[in-house]
Simulated scan of single mutants.
Amino acid sequence: MHNEALEPKITLNNDVKIPVLGLGVWKASNVEAADAVSLAISHGYVLIDTAKQYGNEQGVGDGIQDGLKVAGKNRDDLFITTKVYSGDQGYQASIDAIDGQLERLQTDHVDLLLMHWPVTDMYNETWRGMEEIYRSGKARAIGVCNFDVERLTDLLAQASVTPAVNQMEFNPLIHQQDVFELCQENGIQIEAWSPLGNGKLLGLPLLQEMATAHKKAPAQVILRWEVQSNVIVIPKSVHEDRIVENADIFDFSLTDDEMKQINQLNEEKHSRWYDDYQWYGNPAGDPNRIMKA
């Protein structure tokens, strides 16, 4: 199935184009990820987002192979993202880890490689390693995740390559406006993880009213708000009906007033499990504890 709306549309700061909506596979097992990725590709998805830390790169790779066969497409039709695991941070360690990740994903390059978390005293060296990966052609673009203003400012002062993307927690309840503005000033594209707020937003009366008015689901209203806010979204699902529904957001628009009303839901509160990642680093020095979830 061809869905032109899912084709690469946003141009990153290095001229690589990325779709505005894709599939996330956080918390999916290898088997679930393989099925979800294959289904998504068959329904026109191009952007697939995974991470070494998710433990499902192999399943994603299997799903890509299966999905490409079913859809009659090839690797170059997809936009594959994975991430540098915090246990692999550092200049040489990040370089050494990429080949294993590519092998599991069954490709010779990823379209976007992100640093999963800014581990204290390591992220600048990790970025230097990622710049080498970028120059080698094993990643068409590189970026970061979960960088706040302080750490992003520090990275930008030392980086040779400006991050193309900052993937961060973004949904109607948390906008991280200071980070958002810093990224805009530096030509860094925002990509939202947990765009639906772990489903906690779906019951909000405001969103339900808008969904009824547009004959859409609340999740579709949220994703549409994000896309109209110039944010890339990667909603996670392993269910075919949800995968299809999440992509069906390009035949309607929210009014300026509706956008403002959703903007006003902002509480700037991270989800409860955010701090479990210990994204600021781990004094105990155990890299496997840096990210629990």
Results as ranks from 00 to 15, higher is better:
residue 38 S to D: 02
residue 118 P to S: 04
residue 152 L to K: 06
residue 202 L to P: 08
residue 70 V to E: 12
residue 42 S to M: 06
residue 236 K to V: 11
residue 215 K to S: 15
residue 164 A to L: 06
residue 70 V to T: 13
residue 137 G to S: 00
residue 161 V to T: 03
residue 123 Y to N: 10
residue 254 L to E: 03
residue 122 M to D: 07
residue 269 K to I: 14
residue 6 L to K: 03
residue 12 L to R: 00
residue 284 A to T: 13
residue 248 D to H: 07
residue 40 A to S: 08
residue 125 E to G: 06
residue 48 I to V: 14
residue 164 A to Q: 15
residue 167 Q to D: 12
residue 92 Q to M: 01
residue 233 V to F: 07
residue 154 D to V: 09
residue 147 F to P: 02
residue 226 E to S: 15
residue 127 W to S: 14
residue 169 E to F: 01
residue 168 M to D: 04
residue 125 E to V: 10
residue 161 V to N: 05
residue 229 S to K: 15
residue 270 H to A: 13
residue 20 V to M: 08
residue 39 L to G: 00
residue 65 Q to I: 09
residue 22 G to A: 05
residue 118 P to G: 04
residue 70 V to S: 10
residue 167 Q to L: 02
residue 282 N to I: 12
residue 77 D to Q: 15
residue 185 E to N: 09
residue 200 K to E: 12
residue 235 P to I: 01
residue 110 V to D: 11
residue 207 L to R: 03
residue 80 I to A: 01
residue 83 K to T: 01
residue 112 L to R: 11
residue 45 Y to N: 06
residue 177 Q to M: 15
residue 183 C to W: 02
residue 62 D to M: 14
residue 167 Q to P: 05
residue 104 R to S: 13
residue 210 M to C: 00
residue 29 S to V: 07
residue 112 L to D: 08
residue 181 E to A: 15
residue 70 V to M: 10
residue 284 A to V: 12
residue 254 L to Y: 02
residue 59 G to P: 04
residue 261 Q to G: 00
residue 23 L to K: 02
residue 208 Q to K: 15
residue 54 Y to H: 10
residue 74 N to Y: 14
